[in-house]
Amino acid sequence: MTARTVLQPADITRALTRISHEILESNRGGENLIILGIPTRGVALAHRIGAILESIEPGSGRVGELDVTMYRDDLAGQPTRAPARTHIPAGGIDGTTVVLVDDVLYSGRTIRAALDALGDHGRPRAVRLAVLVDRGHRELPIRADFVGKNLPTSADERIRVRLTEIDGIEEVTIES
């Protein structure tokens, strides 16, 4: 197995900064914006994006966590998954623009589950998707609005995102 680093720490920071600006641009400011991270690494990324938004436009970095475990379509036939915490910022998501954040966009099934989960918490005005890496191979009609890096891969390669908050090191690698 060989591992090749595709994003260095500085690349990740630049990507998140660009995504943050794009979010503010497409939302025409920081009004009614909620950033929801999908556990595990999406949450860490959401908090970073929230902090950058806050530094650009104070008050715009409202961050929460959205666990999608209970909405997955692959629960049967796999070892039992432990759910993670869901935290919706005070005030709820009704009428807001929700930006879902995940580390890697692959089949699209996690995002499908996230959209279902979101519907049980309220009715946002719009839902957008931000991912650090889009590796292709979609199985559902889902696309990201904000992408850190497009990485064409083959299905037997593995993308690993490691973040300082969770893994102690910071990098994105392709293993094959």
Binding site: M70, L75, A76, Q78, P79, T80, R81
Partner: peptide, 10 residues
């Protein structure tokens, strides 16, 4: 949930 979802051990 823990008994009915998934196929393997806890």
């Amino acid at each position: 949930y823990l008994l009915l979802s998934g196929s393997a051990e806890l």
